[in-house]
Simulated assay, not measured.
Amino acid sequence: MGLAKNPGESAKRVLVIKLSALGDFVLALGAMRAIRENHPKAVMTLLTTPPYEGLAKATGFFQHIETDGRPKGVKATRELLKRMKAARYDIIYDLQTSGRTANYFKALNLPFSTPPLWSGHAEGSAFFHDNPQRGNMHSIDRLADQLKTAGIGPDKVKGGWPPMPDMSFVRRSQGDKPSLTPAFFSVKEPFALFIPGASAHRSAKRWPAERFGGLAKHVADAGITPVIIGGKAESEIAVEINRIEPRARNIVTRTDLFQIVALAEKALFAVGNDTGPMHMAALSGCPGVALFATSESDPEKACPRGSNIIVAKADTLDELSVRDVWQAVLMLSVIPEAAAGGQS
């Protein structure tokens, strides 16, 4: 940390950088709240990308949201850097800590310039997060450690340590819209969320559709409606699950990020791959079973937090059987024994 001191309440202009992806963005919400609390009088700006603008606005943390955090081309990059320099931020928190954002720091740190205080992994920054274990830490813990290095420790954060993301802002910002109810999707309680999506280019992270279909049968037989959510990339998967278990409700492509949170608040449980909506469900208080391919990602670093979560893992997800995941669901203790009916 050197001789630099966090400006705290005296800061007038603060920038937070968080570009993507959905799961990482959501996991950074606790750190964003801690930054807001530490700079209560500052005008706070978020530099992000278009998919997260609505979510960021709803938090109430930021006065300004800029969505060109990944500019295309030299001209657009130059314009972004010019704007960042002109803003004269007192401190910049790089929560993305990528090669791109390290380059932003380098561009603002040219000779004969007066760069803002910078919190991140870029060498030479005022609050250099140089913990050699940072790459082995869960996102929430890594961001907390980064904030601590920048002078925002447990004594300056409300609600415990590490700063946990809290999805309650969705209800505060959206109110009681009919679109935030299960009835809007013709879904009756009790229901369970099925989240079969994952990175399209990493098939090992996707539990096979036919296994989700087999699990849907168990769930439906217990009197619980399986509700399938996801984006366009999950359309075919949802159709396959529905073919195997017609009692499942397919609402893929129909939910926005706020509706995912609202449904998760009402769901009995969720089952999903290592993907953003699964993190959102857990942080909304929904119990769940998180499916992890350990050849692709480490549950210790990426497991959803915030509620009762059981991890079902294998080297690749095609090694996980329906029985494995169903047993994990039963271990959540959210299905009455009579409804479970001794299924295995």
Rank of each mutant, 00 (worst) to 15 (best):
L3P: 07
K5Y: 03
G8K: 15
R13S: 14
L15G: 07
V16E: 03
V16W: 13
M32N: 05
R33G: 02
P40Q: 10
M44K: 05
T45E: 00
E53T: 13
L55T: 10
L55G: 00
G60E: 04
F61A: 05
H64C: 08
I65L: 03
E66V: 15
G69M: 06
K72I: 04
V74A: 12
K82W: 12
K82P: 04
A86C: 14
Y89W: 06
N109C: 10
P116H: 05
W118S: 03
G120Q: 02
G124D: 05
S125C: 14
P132I: 11
I140E: 01
R142L: 09
A144E: 00
Q146R: 10
P162R: 04
P163L: 03
D166I: 01
F169E: 04
R172Y: 09
R172T: 13
S173R: 14
Q174C: 12
Q174K: 15
P178C: 09
L180N: 07
A183R: 15
E189Y: 09
H201E: 09
A204L: 07
A204T: 14
P208D: 07
A209L: 06
A209Q: 07
D221H: 10
V227I: 06
K232E: 05
S235H: 10
I241N: 04
R243C: 03
P246W: 13
R249M: 11
V252T: 07
L257S: 07
L263V: 09
L263A: 08
E265D: 11
K266P: 01
G272A: 03
D274T: 03
G276T: 03
M280D: 00
T294Q: 05
G306R: 03
S307D: 06
I309S: 02
K313E: 01
A314C: 06
L317V: 08
V322P: 01
D324M: 08
V325M: 08
L330P: 03
P336T: 09
A338G: 11
